[in-house]
Design a protein around this nucleic acid. Structure first.
Lengths: 115, 115
DNA sequence: ACCTGTCGTTTCGCAACCGTTTCAATATCG
DNA sequence: CGATATTGAAACGGTTGCGAAACGACAGGT
């Protein structure tokens, strides 16, 4: 199914959410970082560096750096894959789940208030 | 009015849109820049540097630099206010309007495809 | 054991952003 | 007038991101 949303409503929604994001200064993630975070939390594991890089068509260092940054913020965690120790398994965290839950609520609330 | 949207749908929508944004690499604006751009195009003029700075609770140089950057991309334009030549009036451009129109269509399309 | 390939990370030089401070131009008030 | 205030931009130093290339650790085949 889908949600009915005019182009004008869509822009208005984006506007309100970004304004809130800037004002409340939430941990100020780049578009890439946010896309990676959502991928990790909305798509079933396992997630690897190379998998995310291929999916977003970005280079691997982009993923590594994004994970560094989000790791500092405790939004994600990393573990070596015991079965193939070249791989890194990206793990979710409580803080990350909480962060996205709050963000989802924010979007939802702004959607309801659309003119 | 308002759009019914669950928190889960909201996150899914954000996810899809950001993924598209990263993949197609659209001119890659920061969250602040995008917020400024939407403010300029969705809220009636006039827009000034100091007004935007106050609204987003950021410093004026942040606005100046964002306008520099978006000016290079021809997404916005600037003019001195003839009535008070200290002020700068921020003007919309055809290219900026087109950019946001495409972005609105993108969001709308992703909303329709929500699971 | 030895190549060969793969995975994630690190390093390098570069560009963009940030906040603070300073500045020239302009307006306003005494 | 002259003094003061205000506006947006520029300059400065620091931080963070980027792509490309090189790297070490590891797995798998021969």
């Amino acid at each position: 199914m889908g949600v009915e949303l005019s182009a004008s409503e869509a822009l208005g929604l984006w506007h309100r959410v970004l304004m809130s994001q800037v004002r409340d200064d939430m941990p100020d993630l780049t578009v890439r970082q946010m896309a990676i975070l959502l991928q990790i939390y909305l798509v079933p594991p396992p997630h690897t560096v190379r998998g995310l890089a291929a999916l977003l068509t970005v280079t691997k260092p982009v993923i590594t750096r994004a994970l560094d940054r989000m790791g500092e913020l405790s939004l994600v965690d990393r573990e070596r894959d015991p079965r193939d120790r070249r791989n890194v398994i990206i793990k979710r965290t409580v803080k990350g789940a909480l962060f996205l839950e709050r963000f989802g609520d924010l979007v939802m609330a702004e959607a309801r208030q659309l003119a």
